[in-house]
């Protein structure tokens, strides 16, 4: 049902109805932002990825083939862009090309404003940053986006068996981390 509605918006957009694109953005923007935010750990990078994804969506939607669900397609773009962004950041850091005031900039204009919520999300970032990229991706998609292994497999193109193994390692690391934090 939801899929049919998405397809209807896509068809309307292809036929020149710009409002249909706005409706799609309204429907998916939060999912895109929060996935990127949990993957990247800060507002500045998540905002950049969200905008990138929406621009890709706008420019490529006309070539959407209706073979997979729009939901899977959007998540695939978001997941890939988030990982690319993380890799770019890693390379920049490695080559000392990262802005010296990156740590100050990364939280500027953050949409999580009050201290309690900020503390919560920072605590989560501190746990997730221990996970290698692929484990973090599976952990975020399963725990926060609440997707099944089959859905994640369609998004990432990885096998269900491989995803389970990634999730196993992610669980091991985050629960060890939580235990350590609890005992400190």
């Amino acid at each position: 049902m939801a899929e049919e509605k998405d397809f209807e918006y896509v068809r309307r957009f292809i036929n020149g109805d710009e409002m249909a694109f706005n409706l799609l953005v309204q429907k998916y923007q939060q999912k895109i932002y929060w996935h990127a935010r949990r993957m990247l750990g800060n507002h500045m990078d998540a905002d950049e990825v969200t905008q990138e994804v929406l621009i890709v969506l706008y420019t490529k939607l006309k070539s959407f083939n209706f073979k997979s669900s729009l939901f899977t397609w959007i998540y695939r773009i978001t997941a890939t862009r988030s990982i690319n962004h993380l890799n770019k950041r890693k390379v920049k850091r490695f080559l000392f090309l990262e802005d010296s005031d990156y740590d100050t900039l990364r939280d500027s204009g953050d949409i999580v404003e009050d201290i309690e919520n900020k503390e919560k999300i920072n605590k989560l970032d501190r746990v997730l940053e221990y996970l290698p990229v692929k484990q973090r991706e599976v952990f975020v998609l399963r725990n926060y986006d609440e997707l099944s292994y089959e859905e994640i497999s369609k998004i990432t193109g990885r096998s269900v068996g491989g995803l389970k193994a990634n999730y196993f390692h992610a669980l091991k690391k985050v629960t060890e981390r939580m235990e350590k934090n609890e005992n400190e």
């Binding site: 999580v112 919520n117 919560k120 999300i121 605590k123 746990v127 725990n143 985050v174 939580m178 235990e179």
Partner: peptide, 13 residues
């Protein structure tokens, strides 16, 4: 731990 982690992820923005 998993429930706690999940709760940390649901923040008001």
């Amino acid at each position: 731990y998993l429930r706690e982690l999940k709760a940390l992820g649901s923040v008001e923005a």
